[in-house]
Design a protein around this nucleic acid. Structure first.
Lengths: 239, 239
DNA sequence: AAATTTATTTTGGTATGATCAGTTTAATTT
DNA sequence: AAATTAAACTGATCATACCAAAATAAATTT
């Protein structure tokens, strides 16, 4: 069906038009990262709009991470951080989380993480090793009663394995998934005796494999770790 | 270094505080999707702020996809679409694109997609099969000169495989990755003779394996398909 | 009585102008 | 030359007024 009588007029609000204009300028590198935008008052004159409309456009751009606004100083084109994109993904996961997803999350991890461990073994840098080691010692030092912190640290370890893959796409992909874990881990792991010791040992095995660049061993060790998670979850379900 | 003398005062602007407040309410499901927010004037009274500050907070929330604003009607909590997150990712890649990402994307696909194909073989429904079949016939019917459409259809096939896994996390995870492909595929695939026929055959093999619930075959076939992509890319690099 | 049309009200969008509060810059003092 | 102070600039907030789209209520027509 042709939209013969589709809207002609804006449909876009004025502030949105302004937003697009500035966004386009940034996308087309007419405004480079770090560049300072004209002041609000100046932009108002240039676009011939009110401060209200202009400011709302600018607020949107800053909410999306395209510009940074510094009171008293000015507005600057900001280097879009990967964090902005990840935050957005995280928010999405957060809002669409539902505890029915837990087995599916575990399934994804079981499939993806061993391969990620393999990548890590192949590509890791010394810096990555240090981070992994720190995660392990953090876990050892962690107060056993602080299950929240424990969960965070464990996640951090897995995230560090992802980082060690040296593939930013892997990180972007997995980070939102890890962000969901603390909640469910707290749900599941709490009060499972001896779990911490097991986890530490498993982490150490994974670490050593990555350190020694033994991809297959890293793969296998990670399989074991995730399977354990699955077991505990199954146990938990029975209760 | 402890932040003994860290800032006490806001550091946050008023409109940001308002933004957080509303965002939290949404995250905590105190405001459900579809719920109508009080009108601007009402919210102003409730928060005891000016309309300006409030509106700027609302503009930010809408820019991030959390709420939808309808002139004359009201403001509604919107179902955060994965598209919002993907747009954010795409913007990121637009601004910081670097050709290293191409092999990294391929690497991720090579690791993840065969496993996804395996899941699909295990879990697919008849409806999934129909979708896969349609993607294949679409590709056959596609104008060979329309490389853009060709790329879109090929992506769609892979996305449909992900869907057939019947694991929503897989879908959410892979969608951002697939959204990155059209750009690079156009770059690479254009003018590769015989590529289309090969792709169709490969897709059909994958389809049959999924149809027959032959997980290993699906896995292997997908490995072949991605390796081919890698080959073509390597070839492309030499030029 | 039902359907249509017409006002009216509500809601968001834009425009001004004024004031407040950090930053930066220039002028002044030491 | 360095430190201090004052001025200018920049974004943040407020208050008011008015516009335009949409929803609702009222009046009119059928």
């Amino acid at each position: 069906m042709d939209e013969i009588f589709g809207k002609i007029g804006s449909a876009q609000t004025l502030s949105q038009k302004i937003e697009r204009r500035i966004e386009e300028a940034i996308r087309q590198k007419k405004l480079l990262v770090g560049a300072k935008l004209p002041s609000e008052r100046e932009l108002c004159e240039m676009f011939a709009v009110s401060r209200t409309a202009l400011r709302e456009a600018l607020r949107r751009l800053s909410a999306r991470g395209l510009i940074e606004i510094k009171k008293g100083s000015g507005m600057y084109v900001s280097e879009l951080k990967i964090k902005d994109a990840i935050d957005s993904l995280n928010l999405y996961y957060d809002l669409s989380f539902d505890s029915n997803l837990i087995p599916q999350i575990i399934e994804v991890r079981r499939v993806f993480e061993p391969e990620i461990a393999r990548m890590a073994a192949n590509n890791r840098t010394d810096k990555d090793l240090a981070l992994l080691l720190k995660s392990i010692s953090d876990l050892e030092d962690c107060d056993p009663d602080n299950t929240q912190m424990e969960a965070d640290i464990i996640n951090k370890f897995h995230l560090n394995v992802a980082k060690a893959s040296c593939n930013p796409i892997v990180i972007i992909t997995m980070e939102p998934i890890y962000s969901l874990l603390p909640r469910m881990r707290n749900l599941i792991y709490a009060n499972v005796d001896g779990e911490k010791d097991f986890t530490i040992k498993a982490h150490r095995t994974i670490y050593e494999a990555i350190r020694d660049k033994d991809a297959d061993k890293a793969f296998t060790a990670m399989v074991g770790q995730i399977n354990r998670t699955l077991e505990i979850y199954t146990q938990y379900l029975k209760k």
